[in-house]
Design a protein around this nucleic acid. Structure first.
Length: 154
DNA sequence: GCCAACGTTGGC
DNA sequence: GCCAACGTTGGC
């Protein structure tokens, strides 16, 4: 079992959007960063747990929990010229970008804000990738003890 | 809207 | 392979 944190801008796709999908699942499409792609393609397993993080919004932070719900497969949005994430360099016969489906778990009772997580940067969350200076990854691994600690703040 | 930090691109 | 220019991310 692996643990992850996955960022999304809530005005693009939010925890409530995931919760209101008919089967509460959604392809996590549009990732165009090789490190993030590699994690989805090579490391994610069905059943892995992930924190849903809202970025680029009024109160950035962890807002919910979800599970990895599929094996990795080609990110189809890269093949669609009409799509905002179209990438002509991704060939359906040799896809450049991959994704996994995620499934809604639950919404946290409150937002665990980035500012709150920072309070523990010198302590229990010292090595959390999210808090590393200049970090821009949209998908990152979370150690189990950090995962549990963050949920413990709820 | 600003801007720091980082990733990607492409000329050489 | 270097590196300047450019684009993107994302907090504030």
């Amino acid at each position: 079992m692996n643990y992850w944190l996955m960022k999304s801008e809530p005005n693009e796709f939010s925890i409530d959007d995931l919760n209101t999908r008919p089967k509460k699942t959604e392809p996590w499409d549009g990732v165009r960063n090789y490190q993030a792609r590699n994690m989805m393609r090579d490391q994610m397993k069905v059943g892995d747990q992930a924190l849903f993080y809202h970025s680029a919004c009024a109160v950035p932070g962890v807002v919910g929990m979800m599970k990895i719900n599929s094996k990795p497969y080609a990110d189809f949005t890269a093949f669609d010229p009409e799509d905002a994430h179209y990438d002509p360099k991704s060939d359906p016969d040799n896809p450049r970008w991959f994704l996994v489906d995620v499934k809604f778990g639950r919404k946290l009772k409150r937002v665990i804000a980035l500012s709150e997580l920072r309070e523990y940067h010198e302590g229990p969350l010292e090595s959390l990738t999210l808090l590393r200076r200049g970090n821009r990854l949209s998908i990152m691994p979370v150690e189990k003890q950090h995962f549990d600690f963050i949920l413990g703040l709820e």
